[in-house]
Computed example of a mutant assay.
Amino acid sequence: MKINTSRWARSVALIALAASVAACGLPRSGPTKREIFAGSVQRQGDAFIVSVNERVTRATAFTPALGFGPGFVNAGVVGSDTIRPGDTLGLTIYENVDDGLLANEGLNSTLLEEVQVDGDGFIFVPYAGRIRAAGNSPEAIRRIITDKLDAQTPDPQVQVRRLAGDGATVSVAGGVGAQGVFPIERPTRTLSSMLARAGGIAIPTEVAQITVIRGGQRGKVWFEDLYENPSYDIALRGGDRILVEQDNRSFTALGATGTQNRVDFEDRTISAIEGIARVGGLNPNLADPTGVFVFRNEPAEIANQVLARSDLIGPQRMVYVLDLTEPTGMFEARDFLIRDGDTVFVTEAPYAQWSKTLSALTGTVGTASSISNIASN
């Protein structure tokens, strides 16, 4: 009788333990496929859940458009000889007499070094007065000075040299070989040549972006487009600021993947299948290949196109579903593009949860049996 009572008590204990395990939430990497679908708009949720097909892939194939506006593209190349405020000139004046206006005794030439063009664009030359230099070439300034002095000394000869271009410089910062301020000179009048002057690109070229700030204007291009599209190799202007930086787009991978992490874009575009591969693929012991989800806040114009509607306003919460077991599932995942800020989530297979439950029950039963044995002793 005592033996039967003991067995009955053990059975009751096991049933109670099983019930408690079933009632407890087992560890998991995120929501189940059923729970995600329960949050759809069709079920009074706040997200549109859409199965990915060829039409959806085309509608969502959006990549950030980078380029320069007309104000940059239509700007002509600055003449390297054009003088600007802040430039420094060197003047040599020859006089055809022994006792000239400017030359010291016994000399027939005068050297005027480091004559700086003032903020209004003028320079001062003794006996020639205040002369407009900005906007003129050294040759034009030479003629002006010669004409001014010709009435005061016979047959003057003038040389004008541009010594430095402090008034026509650009700053280059970011991922280049040598950051700094560089003058616009004959070899460095365009964007690509100035980048070369700054030591070239010091970050991966496939994800390098070039931003040019000119006054209130701003333009950005991919570095590789400078060579694929010659119109983007714009002419520079004094005061331009050039910033070289790496593409900062990223997405997050969660759930039953090899690793769960924030992943930076390493190419201009990345597909869903590439994104999964970069985090180690699907976890073979956990993943449900029918439940690969991409969470995204979609602009209204794209959301309307995907859902064949026209009434949506503002960003919409969208959940795109990829089923890798479908005949075309791998193709759809290969063509569907991941965008900046996306969350890629892979659900666990129902078997994984069942396996966890069995494991928990087996461990619990083993623990209960040990306790029972100890108690019986």
Results as ranks from 00 to 15, higher is better:
R7H: 14
R197H: 06
E114I: 02
A65V: 15
Y227W: 12
S359K: 11
W354H: 11
F182K: 11
T347I: 05
V41D: 09
L254F: 02
I338L: 15
E54T: 14
Y127D: 05
R334W: 05
V158S: 02
R28P: 00
D147M: 06
T357W: 13
G129I: 00
E332C: 00
E228P: 02
N297H: 07
A134W: 05
G175L: 13
N285D: 13
V115Q: 09
L17A: 15
A272D: 03
L282G: 04
L236N: 04
R130T: 05
S20C: 14
P138H: 04
N304F: 13
R10Q: 10
V346C: 01
L26T: 08
T169L: 05
Q42V: 09
T269V: 15
V244R: 09
A133P: 03
R132F: 02
L66D: 01
D225R: 11
A253G: 07
Q157M: 06
V158D: 04
P187W: 12
W222C: 03
G121T: 06
A253L: 08
A22E: 09
L226Q: 09
L191R: 08
L358I: 15
V12A: 15
A13P: 05
A173C: 00
E105I: 13
S193K: 14
G165Q: 06
I203Q: 04
G106R: 07
K148W: 01
A22G: 15
L322P: 01
F124G: 01
A151C: 01
W354V: 02
E348V: 00
N229P: 00
L322D: 05
F251C: 10
R334Y: 12
M318C: 10
A360K: 06
A128Y: 02
D264Q: 10
N108F: 03
S372F: 15
R249K: 08
V50E: 02
T211L: 10
G216N: 14
T169C: 06
E332A: 08
V244M: 10
Q42P: 00
R143S: 06
P85N: 09
I338V: 10
